[in-house]
Design a protein around this nucleic acid. Structure first.
Lengths: 106, 106
DNA sequence: TTGACATGTGACTAGAAGGTCACATATTGT
DNA sequence: ACAATATGTGACCTTCTAGTCACATGTCAA
């Protein structure tokens, strides 16, 4: 399986995206901590974290019996650059920012 | 199915990403034109285009008996902003650009 | 050292997704 | 009109994936 395929497949699952959301708020979390926020069993969460790690979206560091998980934004940026060039980026990001502002004030 | 789920599911398939790549180079293509570049049958391509359209990654316009397909970068940018804030974006994009430059000169 | 804690592995099952086909509708040009 | 072209629908099968469980290894603290 190719590198980018791993990334996209990893992002395809809502549970895995939720895990990235949690790590986006604060990373360095353990499996047990991440599991406690979900209804799923520990094994399910472990499988998901493994998929994220193999995709490079999450990097880990072992600390004793714990395994700490960190978010890696690089694959996300590469994904972005695949279909949004530097020129288009200005327009799109401006448009998106405007849309967000309008939604906030409403 | 939620909006972002549709987007991520749509991006999960390599054929659909290839279709986006083709539309990134030049959009306004018809189903038949896109099919001619793939080994798959027309029905497979049609299914994929439908998934992309429902996700909002592709917008269409009918012109007589033809249906023209256009790339919409907005969902990609929203995906990006979910895990890369404005501050992190500077570091990550600089890092990615540097990496690309190094790969080009090698 | 021994019990509690944190993580890891392989097998299994139910459901989702990719791809094809027979069949159908709508539009164009001669 | 009519034949060729372009797109659309529903059923079907096969393959992939999410989730669980029994079982196992490694680490900490008293």
């Amino acid at each position: 399986m190719s590198d980018d395929d791993l990334v996209f497949k990893a992002l395809a699952d809502p549970t895995r995206r939720h895990l990235l959301d949690r790590l986006f708020v604060r990373d360095g979390r353990t499996l047990t901590e991440l599991e406690s926020e979900l209804t799923m069993t520990r094994f399910g969460v472990m499988k998901h974290l493994r998929v994220l790690e193999e995709a490079g979206l999450v990097v880990t560091r072992k600390s004793g019996r714990e395994k700490l998980h960190f978010l890696n934004p690089v694959p996300i940026r590469l994904l972005h650059d695949r279909w949004i060039d530097k020129y288009t980026e200005r327009h799109v990001s401006a448009l998106v920012d405007l849309k967000k502002e309008l939604e906030e004030t409403s």
